[in-house]
């Protein structure tokens, strides 16, 4: 087991977590930049998300008249949860002391916690949009969560562990094995990630169209630094899903030892993997149109079926009798 009182390890955790959080807007900037270029528009600079956050942090906070404590606490809770969640994901190095404290099921729980408070805060002020957005978010997440857990269980069965760090390490040690189960789990997790981070075809992060928005409807009443925190945490969530997909299914390059050289390689590896993932995501978003809200349950049931198939094909095809 990992040594919990490991000073160097905890220092690495802190560095990695802050890197995670501060690089998340850059990933969003990269996606926007790519998307603009694909659609023949003039792209904003890669640093534009940072500027937006900076601007929001320096604006005054306007609170609705009837806002209760939950509404005011929510941005801090959501941001805190995302920060903790980011600390347990291996970004460029495995075997960190923080990964021994929480496994991937706890990660799913963290996301549920953030969503719970977000929906409560959206309903708190009693506007129509808040309630509508909260109900939609809950619908989506209630369907996405079982699919994500299924795909996580597939991983856990392959690696015989639910600990993310151990999963990544085991998969590297297995080398190149063509596993049908991981292919299905990968496809299922990608669909869940698209739904959970509110990208096209489930939700469109760049519009505020009343009839179709899900996530944006919940945060309409926020302003100033509170809005900045919420936007930042949704960027971090996108980054978490991206890193999770890259590192678990394509773990090659991640540092297994805590020395400078392999960590540098690990950093380059994860940066290029995320850039490549961004290209795929943006191409998919450009090709696809946003689907009707009532088609989202079918989309998510496809994700569930894929994850279930992953689980089944592990048992049927890979273990043998």
């Amino acid at each position: 087991m990992l040594d919990l009182i490991d000073f160097k390890g905890w220092l690495l955790v802190i560095i990695q977590t802050w890197m995670f959080v501060f690089l998340a807007p850059l990933l969003v900037g990269w996606l926007t930049w790519l998307k603009c270029h694909l659609q023949n528009r003039r792209a904003p600079s890669l640093l534009q998300p940072y500027r937006n956050l900076w601007r929001l942090f320096h604006k005054d906070v306007l609170l609705p008249k009837h806002a209760s404590l939950i509404f005011r606490m929510n941005p801090y809770i959501v941001a805190g949860v995302m920060l903790i969640a980011a600390s347990i994901i291996p970004l460029f190095v495995v075997r960190m002391p923080s990964s021994a404290t929480a496994d991937v099921i706890v990660l799913v729980g963290f996301f549920a916690l953030a969503k719970f408070f977000q929906s409560l805060a959206a309903m708190d002020i009693g506007t129509a949009f808040g309630g509508m957005g909260a109900s939609r978010e809950m619908t989506v997440s209630a369907l996405a969560e079982p699919a994500m857990l299924m795909s996580v269980f597939t991983l856990a069965m392959v690696a015989h562990s639910t600990n993310l760090s151990t999963v990544v390490e085991t998969l590297i040690q297995h080398g190149l094995v063509l596993r049908p189960s991981l292919l299905f789990a990968f496809a299922g997790l990608v669909l869940v990630a698209i739904a959970e981070t509110g990208r096209i075809p489930v939700d469109n992060p760049s519009t505020h169209l009343e009839l179709t928005m899900i996530h944006e409807a919940m945060v309409l009443e926020y302003s100033g630094r509170m809005l900045a925190l919420i936007e930042w945490s949704s960027m971090t969530k996108l980054m978490i899903y991206g890193v999770l997909i890259c590192n678990v299914f394509f773990p090659w390059g991640i540092a297994l030892h805590h020395d400078f050289y392999s960590m540098f390689i690990g950093f380059i590896a994860i940066a290029s993997k995320l850039m490549l993932l961004g290209v795929f995501l943006v191409v998919a978003e450009t090709v696809l149109a946003k689907m009707r809200l009532f088609r989202v349950p079918i989309f998510l049931s496809l994700a569930f079926t894929l994850s279930l198939l992953g689980l089944l094909s592990y048992i049927i095809l890979e273990v043998g009798s």
Binding site: H174, L176, V177, L178, R179, P180, S181, L183, F184, I298, S301, L302, T305, L306, L309, S313, L317, E318, V319, G320
Partner: peptide, 29 residues
């Protein structure tokens, strides 16, 4: 029989067999 003890070509057979099953599911949906 574990999948890791098989050569890569036989792993590929199982992988494609899984994909055939997936096409059945997508036909269904």
């Amino acid at each position: 029989m574990n999948i890791m003890s098989l050569p890569l070509s036989e792993q590929a057979i199982l992988l494609f067999a899984g994909m055939v099953l997936f096409t059945s599911f997508s036909l269904l949906a």
